[in-house]
Nucleic acid binder design. Structure first.
Length: 276
DNA sequence: ATCCGCGCCTGGACGC
DNA sequence: TGCGTCCAGGCGCGGA
């Protein structure tokens, strides 16, 4: 499931693949993916003749910058983009096709059909949901200790639940939250407003470094993730707790446990992260 | 206002 | 073997 590092790697590959290309036709095969405008036919019509100038990103959202529009795309669990030739066979999980003037096309595939696309007039995308709801990214200047502590101190939710909340901090998903908490030696069920200043500093540092390390490794290829060049990342080999239920903790040897927190499968070391 | 839990989807793992 | 059931999960939304 793509989180910030995977989406950033996808963004970089998309810039190489589609920047400068002009859209001549758009085909939507599963209208529910198109959340805005309400009529998917309007989505298709608006994009005809538009050139892709750049691809931006905030958190887990991709933002295609066109002449007059911004296309905001979320991959959710399994969405992916591939550049192919028009004559290449289209597989059954391809739901949106952007055909270019050069005979190639960008295909959006999504087995689960959970992904979303919103089309906005250029520049307005940051003032309305979904982008306007997003908090700062872990390594941004706005993600200060004071900001983070302020958010944590006013809630009694579990720390895992807060870290998954994209309005507090954007970019972490289920995999990296487990990794960040392990590296910070904090139990996922720890109540947010009981964290010490030292622990908050550690969390902030680990959130930033974990995501940066993963980006440098091309992201984590858990299940089906690949970038738009079809390449896998290698950070899945660096994961310390996620997906390691009953295996030995790399730090202390205890068995990694899996429980449910905030509705999500949650991995942690009961010894290293004992501070509930 | 805050936050929990459901629905969206499909494929794969699992049990009988 | 083949069927049914459960699980995975980000986010928007309705209801508590």
């Amino acid at each position: 499931m793509p989180e910030l590092p995977e989406v950033e790697v996808v963004r970089r590959s998309l810039v190489e693949l589609v920047a400068g290309k002009k859209i001549i036709d758009v085909n939507v095969g599963w209208p529910k993916i198109i959340k805005r405008p309400e009529q998917y036919e309007q989505f298709q019509d608006a994009l005809k003749g538009q050139t892709i100038h750049d691809v931006d990103r905030k958190g887990k959202f991709l933002v295609f910058l066109l002449d007059d529009y911004s296309l905001v795309s979320h991959l959710r669990m399994e969405g992916n983009y591939r550049l192919q030739k028009t004559e290449d066979p289209v597989d059954k999980h391809t739901h949106v096709i952007f055909r270019f003037s050069d005979g190639k096309e960008l295909r959006y595939r999504d087995v689960r059909k959970f992904g979303t696309m919103h089309l906005f007039s250029k520049g307005s995308e940051w003032t309305v949901p979904p982008l306007s709801n997003l908090g700062p990214e872990p390594f941004s200047d706005e993600f200060t200790f004071e900001y983070f502590k302020g958010k944590l101190m006013k809630t009694e939710r579990s720390i895992k639940g807060v870290l998954l909340d994209q309005t507090v901090i954007t970019g972490l998903g289920n995999i990296y939250v487990d990794e960040v908490l392990f590296r910070s030696r904090i139990h996922p069920l720890r109540i947010a407003n009981t964290l010490t200043d030292q622990e908050i500093l550690e969390l902030r540092e680990q959130a930033s470094t974990t995501l940066k390390e993963s980006i440098d490794a091309g992201g984590s290829s858990v299940n089906t993730y690949m970038n738009s060049h079809g390449l896998s990342g290698t950070y899945q080999n660096e994961l310390k707790v996620y997906g390691r239920k009953d295996q030995e903790c790399y730090r202390c040897g205890a068995a990694v446990q899996k429980i449910k927190v905030a509705g999500r499968g949650t991995h942690f070391c009961p010894t290293c992260q004992a501070n509930t």
